[in-house]
Design a protein around this nucleic acid. Structure first.
Length: 148
DNA sequence: GCCAACGTTGGC
DNA sequence: GCCAACGTTGGC
């Protein structure tokens, strides 16, 4: 799950001290992943995009079910979507909680250079999804990289 | 700041 | 339903 650290970083999640909302998804593929590809208790990588370097910085956990993203109905929000029908909200959010921060950033370049991770979706050319699935093998392969 | 990739919009 | 124009993402 990607976030620009200038907007919301893993340190912001740590500072929250408990579950926080993962909001602002405005892409249907991502919406479907949020709805269908995660369940309470699942763990997810926290990825910093547009960062120096961009990469995976830690692990968080999905806390509860998907629910309508409240920002879509908030005219003051940058994520406001006036075309989303209140009786059938377009956009979903999840609550996540902090699990662990890596000792160092596992950068895109390192992911790309690591045998076994070549097929990770985040490395695919032109991919722009902010949430995407990871295989079990990829999960374990990434966890082995940063050390303690 | 550039630009490739790709999603969305809207005219027809 | 096609597709050109436009907007956004995000690495570099």
């Amino acid at each position: 799950m990607k976030s620009e650290p200038d907007t919301y970083s893993i340190d912001d999640l740590i500072a929250k001290g408990g579950p926080d909302i993962w909001e602002g998804c405005r892409n249907y593929t991502v919406r479907n992943f949020i709805r269908d590809a995660m369940a309470p208790g699942d763990e997810a990588f926290f990825y910093h995009s547009n960062a120096d370097p961009s990469g995976i910085v830690g692990v968080m956990r999905i806390v509860g079910p998907a629910y309508p993203d409240p920002t879509q109905f908030d005219p003051a929000s940058e994520y406001h979507d006036p075309k989303s029908p209140p009786e059938a909200p377009r956009w979903l959010a999840r609550d996540v909680e902090f699990v662990r921060k890596f000792a160092r950033v596992v950068s895109l370049a390192e992911l790309r250079a690591t045998p076994g991770l070549e097929e990770m979706l985040v490395l695919r050319r032109g991919q722009r999804l902010s949430v995407m699935p990871v295989t079990e093998a990829e999960w374990l392969g990434v966890l082995a990289l940063p050390g303690l």
